[in-house]
Nucleic acid binder design. Sequence first.
DNA 1: CAGAATCCAACGGGATACTG
DNA 2: CAGTATCCCGTTGGATTCTG
Lengths: 120, 120
Amino acid sequence: MELKYNPVKDCSHKILAISDTMDILNGKWKMSIVACLCYKPMRYSELLKEVNGISGKVLSRELKDLEINELIERIVLNTAPIAVEYRITEYGNSLKELTNTIADWGMSHRKRIISGMTKG
Amino acid sequence: MELKYNPVKDCSHKILAISDTMDILNGKWKMSIVACLCYKPMRYSELLKEVNGISGKVLSRELKDLEINELIERIVLNTAPIAVEYRITEYGNSLKELTNTIADWGMSHRKRIISGMTKG
DNA sequence: CAGAATCCAACGGGATACTG
DNA sequence: CAGTATCCCGTTGGATTCTG
């Protein structure tokens, strides 16, 4: 059969889908935060240490964004002083493959850079 | 055997790797550009249409960034008027799995949003 | 056609100080 | 502890105009 095939158009839906994802995981930090919480629930202060280089203000904002999109949830513990735990939702957990793929590429990229340095 | 196991530390290397990737694919557009060029080589003007919403200035800058990191290459064609083709490098092609994963998540996310709208 | 130049607005993100 | 408020800067990104 003669399937007319438009390569550019067939690419467009992928571009759109990528934009959708990047709109939600925009900025420098969201991927890392999600990856952290995929690993285990964490407190605000833990995340601050674990997500290397993030400031308190930005962490707050990013956590809110992720909560709005139902990727994580915020749980206030009945303690004094107050303690808050952030944990990944079931939906957020669907990002695990994505964060793994990104981390894998980052690691192989780092290896490539390092081996390039020793050669060149 | 008694393998001491630090969950936070085991997460850190992943966070680092994610940061590495995001440093290279930062901004709103690079993932989409790479995905386009993974699909087929394109001209500047094609990319401008295909990467929906990007401006000329930003496209230029992003293409330069990607070229510096050896993910794409710029080929000037011997024509008048001048024509330039951008194509993915072998190394850039290693991002194909990543862009596919991101696009897959975006599509399922869109479905989820739409079905949520009809319900709610 | 493929950009470079310019101008400008908006956002991202850091530092610090403060609050319940 | 878990933020919020404020200030401030650099970058991102859009619109438009100009060039070889």
